Deep mutational scan, measured.
Amino acid sequence: MTSCHIAEEHIQKVAIFGGTHGNELTGVFLVKHWLENGAEIQRTGLEVKPFITNPRAVKKCTRYIDCDLNRIFDLENLGKKMSEDLPYEVRRAQEINHLFGPKDSEDSYDIIFDLHNTTSNMGCTLILEDSRNNFLIQMFHYIKTSLAPLPCYVYLIEHPSLKYATTRSIAKYPVGIEVGPQPQGVLRADILDQMRKMIKHALDFIHHFNEGKEFPPCAIEVYKIIEKVDYPRDENGEIAAIIHPNLQDQDWKPLHPGDPMFLTLDGKTIPLGGDCTVYPVFVNEAAYYEKKEAFAKTTKLTLNAKSIRCCLH
């Protein structure tokens, strides 16, 4: 018999989150649709729960009410004593943790798909938090293969000092899905179709896995975050240069030392320094102006996964 890495157990509980950011409308629209008619997301033997994560922000069509829901799922915020004085999103995070967690427990949901849009030209993107997770690498390989020839990129946010504390991190297997470009507060049919297909293929993978299909060893190309880059700023902290036209919409493309990065209003080009080629992502993302992030630098690498098969009882 072929030796293989056996994944822990079959997958039982899956959640699909929309509206973690209330103005990213593809996930909101799909989740609302699936709450009314969820036939397309159901798979035999699998509990799939669509869920609106930040209903107040969705109602106002804004990213958040008090603070970013997708950055506060750490033990400090989840452990705060519940009171009306807490920011709305912290209270909501505790409610979500109660419903789908608790985080880092045996009772937490197996998989959470968190649906997002970006204003950046990132196409279909899967966000991975753990480079050693054979199950998710296999799932992402399946999704990428199923979507081809449509490109699907994998963004690895594993980093020693950049801690995200994402909404989906309460699950055993957290999956971020990011599709763009799409303006905030807008629905685009092409973007919706791409996100819908990503979810379909992900659920198909889980179904095949649960039925005992063995997935042979595989490898995927990923883009691992190195650092986030702020806009150049003046002495008052105001933005002093904008994304250069040569960099705009060039997510995932190589940016070499000396290539144009920013452009000042008086026409001066600010190039990339250093001696390493990087791959920019979230270029000129609207939501990241407040976070002082013009783009993120990534490096390209390959992740390998062992063969996996479900432990059938």
Rank of each mutant, 00 (worst) to 15 (best):
R132W: 05
Q250M: 09
Y109E: 02
E293T: 15
R233F: 12
S3N: 12
P87G: 14
I52M: 10
H244P: 01
D230A: 09
V281G: 04
L69I: 12
T62Q: 15
G45A: 10
A219V: 08
T62W: 06
Q94C: 13
I226Y: 08
Q184S: 14
Q182S: 10
P254I: 05
V179L: 12
H256K: 11
E238T: 08
K253H: 10
V278C: 11
N77C: 13
G79H: 11
H159K: 13
A171I: 04
A7N: 15
L136W: 00
G180I: 00
E24T: 02
W34I: 01
F282N: 15
L247M: 06
F205S: 01
R168F: 09
Y288A: 15
N23A: 05
A286E: 09
E214Y: 14
Q248N: 04
E24V: 01
G123R: 06
K306Y: 08
M82E: 10
H313P: 11
K268F: 09
D266W: 05
L99C: 09
P50Y: 02
E227P: 01
L86A: 11
F73M: 09
H116L: 11
N236D: 11
A202K: 00
K103H: 15
H207G: 07
F205P: 03
P216W: 03
F17R: 09
C311I: 07
V28Q: 14
Q42M: 12
N70C: 06
L128F: 06
A294N: 02
S105V: 09
Q248G: 00
C310N: 08
S108H: 11
D68T: 05
Y231L: 06
Q248C: 08
Q12T: 14
G176K: 13
F100Q: 05
G176Y: 10
R63A: 10
I170C: 14
D107W: 13
L150Q: 08
M198G: 05
G123S: 05
L162P: 08
L263D: 02
I72C: 10
R92E: 07
S307L: 06
K213H: 10
E285C: 11
P149E: 05
G237L: 04
V28G: 08
S108V: 13
K60M: 14
L25T: 08
K163F: 07
K59V: 13
M122I: 12
C276F: 10
K200S: 09
A287G: 14
